[in-house]
Nucleic acid binder design. Structure first.
Lengths: 156, 156
DNA sequence: GATAATCTCTACCGATTAGATAGAGTTAAT
DNA sequence: ATTAACTCTATCTAATCGGTAGAGATTATC
């Protein structure tokens, strides 16, 4: 399960991407129904990690620091929720050896979860905020979920 | 991240699968370096869910209730850690509507994580304890991780 | 230059969960 | 009867999650 915080972060970024100019925290919070003070922390964190930029004082606000198609879900999730890997010994950003699985490379469980991690990263590191901008597909026969990715859409 | 508890559960099941006959809790705990009393809870839970069977009293112990190739990682994880889906609104076993994402079917974030959930389930519901039994592959050129699945291997 | 509106930062808090530990009870072989 | 095993429920501690609070810094405007 991804955290509520991560969901808020993604929703805020989608909101910022939709709006062409910058938005105030309160504006985003209201529009997305996110607790204001909680959102402050999230955006501050995203700022520290170079995803968004801010302006203080009157007429202040937040804006994306890069085009939406360069902000991947994976990057946001790693900032907010930490490693994507389901085991510490599979994490790229926070590798930690399993204290017990002594055989290491032979660890059967590790091998299985490596597949899970790879496929999760495959989706999350290729999907961007821009992909989330496209409006709902006509839904006529949008049954197949993992089919095609409209990656170069970028502008709604 | 999957829980320590789930890792213990999988390791215990692998140990039980390797041993042809039943094993005592203490035996598994020692062999796998799992806290004994914690393992008791885990095995009891797995028993309540029909994965293992037990015998009490002297000469007691635990044994698998079905062949290893019929125990999927997904099933074990759902018992121990709960839903695999990264969002409640994507869970099959514990669906819960997101309070905020009002547009529901149009939720962009949901669409992305649906892909993640599908690919995770694809791996976890197809991999069994039996798959974890195969010893380390020769590693000559086992570089490609998501390539082929030895699904019909079944017996080591 | 005062004021008001905005972001910044750090601390805190209540509830829940993770990861165990404890111990009394039940069953069964000897 | 005894002993060695599983069974069940309660409890504990530390961390995490989701959120609040409030003092401080910055900037546009009057």
């Amino acid at each position: 399960m991804i955290s509520q915080k991560a969901r808020y972060a993604l929703r805020a970024l989608v909101a910022l991407a939709r709006a062409d100019d910058s938005m105030m925290i309160a504006e985003i919070a209201d529009q997305q129904h996110i607790p204001r003070k909680f959102l402050e922390q999230i955006l501050l964190d995203l700022k520290h990690h170079g995803i968004v930029a801010s302006r203080r004082g009157r007429l202040g606000g937040y804006g994306l620091l890069m085009p939406p198609d360069q902000i991947t879900f994976g990057r946001v999730l790693r900032i907010v929720d930490g490693p994507i890997a389901p085991l510490p010994c599979l994490s790229r950003i926070a590798y930690r050896r399993c204290a017990d699985c002594q055989t290491e490379t032979a660890c059967e469980i590790r091998r299985v979860f490596a597949k899970v991690a790879d496929s999760a990263r495959d989706v999350l590191d290729r999907t961007t905020i821009a992909d989330a901008l496209v409006e709902e597909v006509p839904a006529a026969d949008a049954a197949k979920p993992g089919a095609k990715r409209p990656s170069a859409k970028a502008r709604a």
